[in-house]
Write a protein that binds this DNA or RNA. Sequence first.
DNA 1: GGGAAATCTTACAGGTTTCTTACAATTTAT
DNA 2: ATAAATTGTAAGAAACCTGTAAGATTTCCC
Lengths: 233, 233
Amino acid sequence: MNECILAVDDDREIVKAIAILLEKEGYRVLKAYDGMQALDLLTQNSVQLVIMDVMMPKLDGLSAVMRIREKQNIPIIVLSAKSEDTDKILGLSMGADDYVAKPYHPAELAARVKSHLRRYTSLGDIHAAGQDKLTNGRLCYHIAEKILYADGEAVRLTATETKIIELLMKNPGRVFPAEEIYERVWEEPNFVSENTVMVHIRRIREKIELNPKEPEYLKVVWGIGYKMEKKER
Amino acid sequence: MNECILAVDDDREIVKAIAILLEKEGYRVLKAYDGMQALDLLTQNSVQLVIMDVMMPKLDGLSAVMRIREKQNIPIIVLSAKSEDTDKILGLSMGADDYVAKPYHPAELAARVKSHLRRYTSLGDIHAAGQDKLTNGRLCYHIAEKILYADGEAVRLTATETKIIELLMKNPGRVFPAEEIYERVWEEPNFVSENTVMVHIRRIREKIELNPKEPEYLKVVWGIGYKMEKKER
DNA sequence: GGGAAATCTTACAGGTTTCTTACAATTTAT
DNA sequence: ATAAATTGTAAGAAACCTGTAAGATTTCCC
């Protein structure tokens, strides 16, 4: 489930250092030592981000970036020695998304990786949704505003409640076991059986249902989970 | 029938890369390697959009932008190295419609080109029409002047505050996590957890809100971020 | 109807997020 | 060079959210 990053540099020490840094952050890291190896690994694995040195034997950084772009549209961060001419580097890194000078601050590299991954994966998310509003009966969820409207009135939901509603509104009619809701909202497995999700569901009902005791939207499916009832228009 | 774009940069590799990218998207691309060449091509051809580096020999980006504006009102996207001083770039790109930092994601450049062309061709001359003001309730932000007015009175905002306001006024109603505000205003990842953004938000509230303790414009969305409340007209 | 399992309800203590204030460091203007 | 303004950091206060537990209720199935 966790994201996979490809680190490419002819200096093995640097690749190793990057791997250690990013693995500590919870990413899976693949290693390559020239452009050709990098391309091979990319075809064989599902990679979400590439970190690459501009100066490399076999296949240099620029060519490698171009070749990657032909196939995939993943974020690419380019590394380079600071001494070299900035303009030249920027030319060389055409098609990359970001540029980090060596020596770099480990925390900074990690932050940039995180930032690009978030933008890349969230953009994918928006694309999948296609719209900025999800309407269902009395309810209407604005994805960008992160606000749920009931009968046109904004509902005051908390952050956790908003995430649950976003999940359910994006998948109206689909039943989610409480366990799945937990894992997708909290983004971590719930090993202890809790009624945490249940309590949140109740709180949401209190805010969106006309009669929370007999919900018409946020319904329970006995023995399975919860769902957002799909309404006719 | 298909639209024509002029790419200008003294680095031929970059112009070539831009051309390949945009031709793949179905545009016709003219190439120039300095400001003078660019102006020549503009008089001889029907061009719908210009992509230009700020730093160029012969005729620099700023001057070129000005000269183009004298004659035609087409969209101009300015390129620049991220390392260069942000304020200086802002000055240089005065009169441009958009600004993209190098290195950039090809898909991003393509998307911006598409978006500017759509606006330009569909609405005709949007510049003349004057979408240079963003009004929301008591507030009105002039994009070109970079000044915020509250009840018609200019508000004395600092540079950082202005950037935050511009981001929020351009996206009324949308919620931005503090982290995203940081990244989009400072243009670098915030790898140390700080409450910097929060303090700036408070200072802006002090200047624009009637009662800063209970903001009616610059609102917090608990656990998620901040937003500019969208007001009715 | 009875019993077991699943879900609902309630309350609260602890934790997190945001606010506020002050100050030191930095930048800009005089 | 000096003063003024701006900016980032820290730390304590306030507001708000969250998970847990424990008892109540509903549903299912025999």
